[in-house]
């Protein structure tokens, strides 16, 4: 069945290494300097080097969407990008959404609709919905389905994910 590849267009990367190399990564508004192996994925850099474990990994090969983050505002599979590809770029992760202890409307919608079971795919789903709403504040059910088709949920929270995305759109639109 369909899987949608969510990937930014091919980035130009200068050859680096062997050995560790320095990069600058702006994550959730904060700039970090990292010394990393060139083969380090963005996902591992976020999780292991920056301790941002909210972004999950379920396949590490671009087939599930669990690791979805926003790179320069566009959704990507963080397991499919090398950290060095993101040098100088800005990344948004699930940790950026709630501000001052206030949940983001998407997060509130996910809780209200129970759009999660085990919750492991949830950060990726939320980031995909975020990308959708940033681009299209008034999505149809079909838009939602298409966007989420790149995010697997083994628990089968799909019907609730659809409702949550639509409710979130409503909350965002009406500024609630």
């Amino acid at each position: 069945m369909a899987t949608k590849a969510v990937r930014a267009k091919k980035l130009k990367v200068a050859i680096r290494g062997p050995g560790k190399t320095a990069i600058k990564l702006t994550v959730n508004g904060e700039t970090h300097e990292l010394l990393i192996e060139p083969r380090r994925t963005l996902l591992n850099a976020l999780r292991k080097d920056l301790g941002l474990t909210g972004t999950k990994k379920a396949c590490d090969e671009g087939t599930c969407g669990t690791c979805t983050v926003l790179l320069e505002g566009k959704p990507i599979y963080a397991c499919m990008a090398l950290a060095i590809e993101c040098d100088g770029k800005s990344v948004e992760t699930i940790e950026s959404l709630s501000k001052d202890g206030q949940l983001h409307p998407i997060q509130r919608a996910f809780i209200a609709e129970d759009a999660l079971q085990c919750g492991f795919c949830t950060p990726g789903q939320i980031m995909s919905v975020k990308a959708l709403l940033d681009e299209n504040p008034n999505p149809t059910l079909d838009d939602v389905k298409r966007v989420l088709s790149g995010n697997l949920c083994r628990c089968g929270a799909y019907p609730k994910l659809f409702q949550a995305a639509l409710r979130a759109a409503d909350l965002v639109r009406t500024g609630r």
Partner: peptide, 20 residues
Amino acid sequence: PRIDGPERVTGRALYTFDVQ
């Protein structure tokens, strides 16, 4: 609604995979 919803939607819920 789930009482642990906030942990789950913020990425703060600690899975075995997250233990460092």
